[in-house]
Design a protein around this nucleic acid. Structure first.
Lengths: 236, 236
DNA sequence: GTTAAACTTACAAGCGTTCGTTTTTATGCA
DNA sequence: TGCATAAAAACGAACGCTTGTAAGTTTAAC
């Protein structure tokens, strides 16, 4: 057998990247075999090499694409805001919002860095630093303008990032809280943390789904998942 | 060749667990081969099986030991405090303090859960839940006594845990800040987050090392490390 | 002299990757 | 438009290597 009818290179590559993202987020880079990946795509292992150079290149491509898009979208989200408090609120809303939507990408991009070879690792770390700088600049600016009160920019930035990124580990789309509610809760936590009276609407008013709806949704979600290892880790 | 002079079963097992912790934290469970582990200990791969049943059992043993000790030590740290704010401060100090000291254990226990088989995974999750409950109870109690103001217990607890656990990803023992300074910064962030006026001493007064000392220490640390991949991930 | 703890050797399975082949699609020319 | 030809995209088999683990052997310790 050979080329299948209707096979398109671009479509296959897309399927490989999507399946790779899924399997890496689920099992980790090392634990995902190329035969496993190929089976998920519906081709043979060797055929992967019509679309990717190596397994490592697939990983680094996924991570870089995610992080570059992240930076681009963040800049767009921050654009137009000048007041430090506004910018921080925009940052939190953006970070939590996209991390809730792109959990697989986040998982791979944060937990599989150790699988990267030296030079690839260095490049990704540089990207991450660029992203973090957006936050540290907001914090520094807010402090300089006497809008924020906090101790140490770097530690505070890391603390905020870790807190916000944590949502990926427990969020379920059909869970009790809406995305907006989760964003609001975190926004308020962060703003209070840097000493700004938050003016975010309360989650109770806008975001929380009705109890009955949430319960049935949660039950459905539970039943659907394959019982074991739906998720890797949660910070404990 | 065979048994070496001075070889003791207990000592070898300890060395295996320590090396396993180190290698798993560095490269991940899947990426750590038993031959690699054996070499680190100074024995042959087959000899490992005089001390451990399987690779998986080594992992689950390390994780369970860490988490059980964590719960035990937390209960000891909380003992004697009644006021919710005091208890929360004690929690933060304990969590950050031990996580700074036991970074390898934390890494393995939080990032290698996906490598656990079904039943082992379930047991560890149960332990983690017990630990988290200590925090949610403090939060609920503080809210009931009108000492705390926050939105949602579960989300707030997860947010706090993620934030505090994040220190493992960037802390270096010879870095700019002392352990106590880091604890203080996080304590203040958390207490502000739940609406309590913190009375923690400022980091500037007590914890920050002198600039000269920190710089030379940091340089030494950098030179010592093998340049590449000293650390796996940081939440971005 | 029994047991514990190391050794060496080997297995079967799985790994990422390469290669030659086959079939479909796209392209250039009549 | 029709046809030869090149390129694309799949296949299956195989490569050399590593993996976790088992088994039998050898030597030190109790």
């Amino acid at each position: 057998m050979a080329r299948k009818t209707g096979a398109s290179g671009a479509a296959t590559l897309k399927a490989i990247r999507q399946a790779g993202l899924k399997l890496m987020a689920q099992h980790g880079y090392e634990a995902m075999s190329l035969r496993h990946l190929a089976a998920e795509v519906g081709i043979q292992a060797g055929s992967l090499y019509n679309h990717i150079a190596t397994k490592q290149e697939l990983l680094v491509g996924l991570i870089r694409a995610h992080m570059e898009e992240l930076i681009r979208a963040l800049d767009a989200a921050l654009d137009g805001h000048d007041d430090p408090a506004d910018r921080l609120r925009a940052f939190v809303a953006f970070h939590v919002g996209t991390h809730l939507l792109k959990r697989q990408e986040v998982y791979v991009s944060t937990f599989e860095l150790r699988a990267l070879e030296r030079t690839n690792y260095a490049k990704v770390v540089r990207l991450r630093r660029r992203y973090e700088q957006r936050l540290t600049r907001i914090l520094d600016d807010g402090k300089a303008r006497r809008r924020f009160v906090f101790d140490d920019t770097r530690v505070t930035a890391y603390a905020i990032l870790a807190m916000l990124t944590g949502v990926c580990t427990w969020y379920r789309p059909k869970g009790r809280l809406s995305r907006q509610a989760i964003i609001d809760i975190h926004t308020r936590l962060v703003m209070k943390g840097v000493g700004v009276k938050s003016r975010v609407r309360t989650a109770a008013k806008i975001g929380v789904k009705s109890a009955a709806k949430a319960k049935s949704a949660a039950a459905k979600g539970r039943a659907k998942r394959p019982a074991h290892k739906p998720r890797p880790a949660r910070a404990a």
